[in-house]
Nucleic acid binder design. Structure first.
Lengths: 172, 172
DNA sequence: CACAGTTATTTCACTAGTGAAATGAGAGTG
DNA sequence: CACTCTCATTTCACTAGTGAAATAACTGTG
């Protein structure tokens, strides 16, 4: 029983013919992570849009919901992997839609605290649950063995990557 | 020796406190894939920019290099995970920069064949090699065990995902 | 307490990507 | 061979995200 090749296997085989001297083995991990992320997004974002948020807004609202509420824009910024400008813009839009509020910080007037409104909380709780549902859907063809293999491996990768140089991304 | 938690572990623990009834286990895979992709991009794109291409342009040129040369825009479009409009725009820009050429198709004048120029070929060969180098760099802290675990697991995931419903993405 | 330095956030001008409509060409049918 | 259907690609108007400059506030230090 020969398994059908996945796109990365195919790509590596093609490169092998053109540049046999190159070691393309890193694509097994890197190529697949990037590809899988793209495909997963494509599949999962439909559900979010249906709830009225795109992936970035969803991530931001989730971060807000998970963390002890009044969070500074700067912290949101480091939790998400985006530019400061993007975070500012998203906060503004979500505030206009009444999903979150900015409360000026007493002690440091450069900053402000951002918190979910009641409406925002309700929306994200619903969207998060539906998103989990959708995730179960896409992962269902994957065996438990494979799942834990991926989970463990990527956890290790993330720890090694986020330790080095990247913006301080300690979950708290 | 307790391992430091990775960001997804942290997130799950936080959700657990807020919504103990939800099964967030899918985040172990989905959350990590998305997160890892974001971090990997951040780390690797610097090298590409240094070669004068962004990730999308790089992917497009790679696809062109790997496949038997005269490729239709439509095929490029399905190889990459993007909208038709995006592909059109990228082809135009890369053509203006002299990295690829559009040759009208004899048999079907709706379409055209896209092929690398000599300059494009040189650029992508250099960029691809340097990108591999950079990938080796980011993966170096990861043990071989973990690598193959991730690779095998994600290959399985990709096969299961790209089979269903997604645009026809057979590597050839 | 002025003032140089640093930090948090926002604004700005610009680029990349999107969905939907438009264009232009093949294909099937009476 | 007109005419409708479908298909490949492009154009258009718009949204999201970016890096760099601007703004505004805090923090020593002399």
């Amino acid at each position: 029983m020969t398994r059908s090749p996945d796109p990365i296997e195919t790509a590596r085989a093609q490169w092998q013919r053109i540049h046999p001297e190159l070691d393309t083995s890193t694509l097994d991990v890197v190529g697949r992570v990037l590809r899988a992320a793209a495909v997963l997004r494509q599949r999962l974002d439909a559900t979010l849009l249906d709830e009225g948020v795109n992936r970035s807004e969803f991530d931001l609202l989730c971060a807000l919901r998970r963390n002890a509420e009044p969070v500074t824009p700067g912290r949101l910024n480091s939790l998400m992997l985006a530019s400061g400008a993007a975070t500012t813009k998203r906060i503004q839009q979500l505030a206009e839609r009444g999903l979150l509020e900015r409360v000026p910080d007493e002690h440091d007037r450069r900053s402000a605290r951002v918190g979910l409104t009641e409406q925002g909380r309700r929306l994200i709780d619903r969207a998060f649950a539906r998103n989990l549902e959708a995730e179960r859907g896409v992962l269902s063809p994957l065996g438990n063995r494979q799942r834990t293999a991926i989970a463990r491996g990527l956890a290790e990768l993330l720890r090694s990557l986020e330790g080095t140089s990247g913006s301080a991304l300690t979950g708290r």
